[in-house]
């Protein structure tokens, strides 16, 4: 399997614990990466489009976010396929990380 692109991987991670709307995904990705990955809306929805087509995520319902205004927002959730994919990618990264440690390039 091809390594996932960073935006796809982090979007999947964002959806691993709960359904989120687009802005919620962006905020969670920023948290995950210490603000290193700041996706614009074009990047986010371009990825979501491809992930929907690949069956990694699916649309949940549309509802307002209680922490924001009362606008209805489209929520996204991860599919079983998406969960398998993100687990595989996390394992790949873990293996790469332990290799980096054994070669002393990473503490």
């Amino acid at each position: 399997m091809e390594p996932l692109t960073p935006p796809v991987f982090h979007i999947l991670l964002a959806l691993a614990d709960e359904e989120r709307h687009g802005y919620g995904i962006m905020q969670d990705v920023a948290r995950q990466t210490n603000d290193a990955l700041q996706m614009g809306p074009g990047t986010l929805y371009g990825c979501l489009k491809r992930m929907l087509a690949a069956g990694l995520v699916e649309e949940a319902d549309e509802r307002p976010d209680p922490e924001m205004d009362d606008e209805r927002r489209r929520y996204y959730r991860m599919t079983m396929q998406g969960r398998k994919t993100v687990r595989g990618e996390a394992q790949r990264i873990a293996i790469a990380l332990s290799a980096a440690k054994s070669k002393r390039v990473f503490a």
Binding site: G22, P41, Y45, K49, M68, R73, R74
Partner: peptide, 14 residues
């Protein structure tokens, strides 16, 4: 058509 409205929402929130 599919994402325009959501992108506008995100734009405002950001």
């Amino acid at each position: 058509a599919r994402f325009g409205r959501e992108m506008e929402q995100v734009f405002r929130a950001r």
